[in-house]
Deep mutational scan, measured.
Amino acid sequence: MTSCHIAEEHIQKVAIFGGTHGNELTGVFLVKHWLENGAEIQRTGLEVKPFITNPRAVKKCTRYIDCDLNRIFDLENLGKKMSEDLPYEVRRAQEINHLFGPKDSEDSYDIIFDLHNTTSNMGCTLILEDSRNNFLIQMFHYIKTSLAPLPCYVYLIEHPSLKYATTRSIAKYPVGIEVGPQPQGVLRADILDQMRKMIKHALDFIHHFNEGKEFPPCAIEVYKIIEKVDYPRDENGEIAAIIHPNLQDQDWKPLHPGDPMFLTLDGKTIPLGGDCTVYPVFVNEAAYYEKKEAFAKTTKLTLNAKSIRCCLH
């Protein structure tokens, strides 16, 4: 018999989150649709729960009410004593943790798909938090293969000092899905179709896995975050240069030392320094102006996964 890495157990509980950011409308629209008619997301033997994560922000069509829901799922915020004085999103995070967690427990949901849009030209993107997770690498390989020839990129946010504390991190297997470009507060049919297909293929993978299909060893190309880059700023902290036209919409493309990065209003080009080629992502993302992030630098690498098969009882 072929030796293989056996994944822990079959997958039982899956959640699909929309509206973690209330103005990213593809996930909101799909989740609302699936709450009314969820036939397309159901798979035999699998509990799939669509869920609106930040209903107040969705109602106002804004990213958040008090603070970013997708950055506060750490033990400090989840452990705060519940009171009306807490920011709305912290209270909501505790409610979500109660419903789908608790985080880092045996009772937490197996998989959470968190649906997002970006204003950046990132196409279909899967966000991975753990480079050693054979199950998710296999799932992402399946999704990428199923979507081809449509490109699907994998963004690895594993980093020693950049801690995200994402909404989906309460699950055993957290999956971020990011599709763009799409303006905030807008629905685009092409973007919706791409996100819908990503979810379909992900659920198909889980179904095949649960039925005992063995997935042979595989490898995927990923883009691992190195650092986030702020806009150049003046002495008052105001933005002093904008994304250069040569960099705009060039997510995932190589940016070499000396290539144009920013452009000042008086026409001066600010190039990339250093001696390493990087791959920019979230270029000129609207939501990241407040976070002082013009783009993120990534490096390209390959992740390998062992063969996996479900432990059938």
Rank of each mutant, 00 (worst) to 15 (best):
H207C: 14
H116R: 08
Q250A: 12
A296S: 11
H207G: 11
D130N: 08
D234E: 07
E36A: 11
G19E: 02
C124P: 10
W34H: 01
N133W: 01
K253T: 07
C67K: 11
N284W: 00
G19T: 03
N121W: 04
K32S: 10
I65A: 08
G273Q: 13
H98N: 13
L115D: 03
L25P: 15
T125D: 06
E227R: 01
D66W: 08
E285V: 01
I137G: 01
K103Q: 11
G101S: 07
R63V: 03
A15Q: 05
E129N: 11
A57R: 05
P280R: 05
P160L: 07
L136V: 07
N117P: 03
A15V: 00
K144D: 04
E89Y: 01
Y153L: 06
E76A: 12
G212D: 00
T298K: 04
I127G: 03
I308P: 04
K172D: 01
S3M: 11
F29D: 04
D234M: 07
E293S: 13
V281I: 15
T277N: 03
Y153D: 02
L86D: 12
E84G: 14
F282R: 15
M139L: 07
P183V: 02
R71G: 14
L99N: 10
Y164C: 14
I270G: 03
S146Y: 09
A202C: 00
K49H: 12
P174K: 15
N117T: 15
F295N: 00
P102D: 08
S307Q: 10
T264M: 08
N121T: 05
I96C: 07
K197C: 11
R92C: 12
D130A: 00
D204E: 00
G185V: 04
R196M: 05
Q248A: 07
A202I: 01
I308N: 04
L203R: 06
I143A: 01
C276E: 15
P102V: 10
N37P: 06
F215C: 00
P149D: 06
A148V: 07
E290M: 09
K292S: 10
D259W: 00
A7N: 13
G45C: 03
K60C: 11
I157Q: 15
E235Q: 11
L263Q: 10
D266S: 09
S105M: 11
M195V: 11
T277S: 08
D66L: 00
D74V: 10
I72G: 12
N134T: 12
P50Y: 04
M195K: 03
T118M: 04
R168F: 07
I225V: 15
M198G: 00
Q138V: 05
T277Q: 06
P55V: 10
T302G: 01
I52Q: 01
L115G: 04
R196F: 04
D275L: 06
G27V: 03
T264Y: 04
R132Q: 15
V179H: 03
G19Q: 02
L162C: 14
E36I: 07
D275C: 08
E293W: 10
T145Q: 15
D234Y: 08
V278T: 08
E129R: 07
G27R: 01
M82I: 13
S83Y: 11
V186N: 06
G237E: 06
G27K: 04
V229D: 05
H201M: 06
D230R: 09
I11V: 10
P87F: 09
T26S: 15
P87E: 11
K49D: 08
Q182S: 15
Y288H: 15
E36M: 09
K49L: 09
E89G: 04
G273W: 01
T277C: 08
R196A: 02
I111Q: 05
N37H: 11
C67L: 12
P260Q: 02
V229Q: 10
P160A: 11
P50L: 02
D259I: 02
F17E: 02
A202L: 02
R309Q: 08
S120G: 00
I16T: 06
L35N: 09
W34M: 00
D234C: 07
E285D: 15
R233I: 11
F135C: 03
Y142P: 04
K59G: 12
R63T: 11
E285Y: 02
A93T: 08
S131Y: 07
D66G: 08
L115Q: 05
R233T: 12
V31N: 02
L312E: 15
Y88G: 06
L303T: 05
H208S: 14
N54D: 06
K297Y: 07
N304F: 14
R233M: 10
M82Y: 13
D68N: 07
P271G: 08
N133R: 04
Y88V: 08
D114F: 00
D104W: 12
Y289K: 14
R71D: 13
F135Y: 07
K253P: 04
Y109Q: 01
E95V: 10
I191H: 01
F262W: 07
C218G: 04
V222K: 02
W252C: 08
P183S: 11
L192R: 02
A148G: 07
P160C: 09
C311D: 13
M198T: 11
K306R: 12
P174I: 11
I137T: 00
Y155T: 15
A305V: 01
K197R: 12
E84C: 13
D249G: 11
I41K: 06
D130S: 07
M139T: 05
K81T: 14
T118V: 11
L75I: 13
H33C: 07
K81I: 13
V175P: 03
W252Q: 02
T26G: 15
L99Y: 13
T298F: 05
I225H: 15
I11W: 04
K200V: 10
Q194K: 15
C311M: 14
S146Q: 15
L136K: 04
D114T: 07
N77Y: 11
A93H: 09
F140S: 06
V186M: 11
Y288S: 15
L25N: 08
K200P: 05
E221W: 02
D266R: 06
C152I: 15
P254E: 10
L150E: 13
G258P: 06
H208P: 05
G79F: 14
R196N: 01
Y88M: 07
D74I: 09
G123V: 04
F262S: 03
A286F: 07
P183M: 03
A39E: 14
K103H: 12
D275E: 11
D275N: 11
V186K: 04
L78Q: 10
E40T: 04
A305C: 07
